[in-house]
């Protein structure tokens, strides 16, 4: 919402005709100036971004498979949706596949801190499990 406000007072983007009328109006209101002005319209911003799991610092790896969180756990084919990262209540994060293997082998604790493992929320309190089936 904030962004919309910003947008409306910086870039006035209206159809060509209207805009010219507006300009004339603006011009008549302001003190006459011979300075030229620049108007920038962004037709498209194609950016490049990388995604992270937001689980600790960049070089942190999954404690079980030792590969980066943004990488893939053994057995998964693609990173991201197919290889989600889950957080325990204790705050430790692992690949879902890795911790599932761990829990399936009759263990119920967090591999790191030996607390009873419970699926929890990520450090910034976002809900995890239902978003990543």
């Amino acid at each position: 919402m904030e962004s919309r406000k910003r947008q409306s007072d910086t870039a006035v983007i209206v159809p060509q005709q209207q805009r010219q009328q507006q300009q004339a109006m603006q011009f008549s209101n302001t003190t006459p100036s011979t300075r030229s002005r620049l108007r920038v319209r962004i037709k498209r911003f194609h950016g490049v971004a990388k995604w992270t799991w937001n689980a600790g610092s960049e070089d942190e790896v999954c404690g079980i498979c030792q590969s980066p969180f943004e990488g893939v756990a053994p057995g998964a084919k693609y990173p991201g949706d197919e290889c989600p990262v889950v957080f325990g209540k204790c705050g430790h994060a692992f690949h879902l596949q890795c911790v599932a293997t761990w829990l399936n082998s009759q263990r119920t604790t967090c591999p790191y801190c030996r607390q009873e493992w419970e699926f929890g929320q990520s450090s910034d309190q976002r809900r995890v499990s239902e978003q990543n089936p």
Partner: peptide
């Protein structure tokens, strides 16, 4: 969620 974007 909980993924984030880091713009390059």
């Amino acid at each position: 969620n909980p993924r984030r974007l880091v713009w390059l």
